[in-house]
Amino acid sequence: MLKSRFSGLLFQLIALALSFGVVSLILISIDASPSEAFRNMFKGSFGEMRKFAEVLVAFVPLLLVTAGLLVTFSAGLWNIGVEGQVVLGAIATTWVYRYFLESDLPPALIITLAILGGMIGGAIWAAFTGILKVFGGVNEIFGGLGLNFVATALTIYLIFGPWKRPGVASMSGTIPFPDEFSLPLIENLRISPWALGIALIAIIIVFFLLQGTYFGLKLKAVGKNFRAAYLLGIPTWQYSMYSFLICGALAGLAGAMQVAAVYHRLIPSISSGYGYLGLMVAMLINYQAIWAIPVALFFAALNIGSIQLPIVMKLDSSLSGVLQGVLVLFALLVEGARQKFIKKGQNT
């Protein structure tokens, strides 16, 4: 047991080394210095407080999405629709804010309602995927992907239609909300300690949900063997639905954070691809909640660090995406290789 855990860690480190190696080769092939690029990425993310705060801004939605995906993955579901669920969370939050724009209610209450609204919005969007899956027999990957496109289209429609800025609608989004609608930020930085706290609490709750509750155990049973779980007396399709709802709520929460703490309005690319990035994090940590925090932080750092690249080195910032993708591929690859080793060891 211990041995296999140790070898697991060792292989993951090999995967990490391999992916840095591949990215270095790419950089060398275009006559750029890998060491300089990596140094710049590190400086761009951890170099100064302001930049580290930016990393945390990216970390919050990424961690929330990952937390949600851990639930659906445990239930054996590929919730690709998480991206759209983030978007719907943002839309619902914006809707609640707009609804209370003229009200005299205390801002703290409005913010709370807006965030709850975002969670409900995300959950409803996830429920669509779940209903399509459970009652319509539509694979959640296709259902979710389709709904992602609908969600994006809906954002654009709202920004250029009913919620457009007075005068000319623009890609810069809806008109920003008043300052008191924002979650409190740390002075001179863009990070809200509230958002950070909510994200950390969410992942801790998910961790205990999966580790310590009957709910989590049943969810895992459904995910690992649907048929046997049914025969054991677990209401299987209901558990599939619950997992969609929980994941949708957490994704919606991520969307709410984007509106309430970062952009203070609805913008076209409000989810910034955190849904898809969260899928990569969840795969990379092999669906173990305990690794979510460090890996999500690492991915957020890569994202922010690479912003530096076009300015300093005339490299495209998508380099971070390349590194993230390659890393996930290698992690899956070495895990497959490791399983083969273990099997071989058992046979002889």
């Binding site: 009957y214 895992k220 049973a221 690992k224 063997n225 048929r227 046997a228 779980a229 025969l231 054991l232």
Partner: peptide, 17 residues
């Protein structure tokens, strides 16, 4: 395929049953 759940431990099975 139908009776047991690979990936879960004996304890997990007894608890669920």
């Amino acid at each position: 395929e139908e009776g047991l759940i690979p990936g879960l431990s004996l304890t997990d099975h007894f608890i669920l049953a």
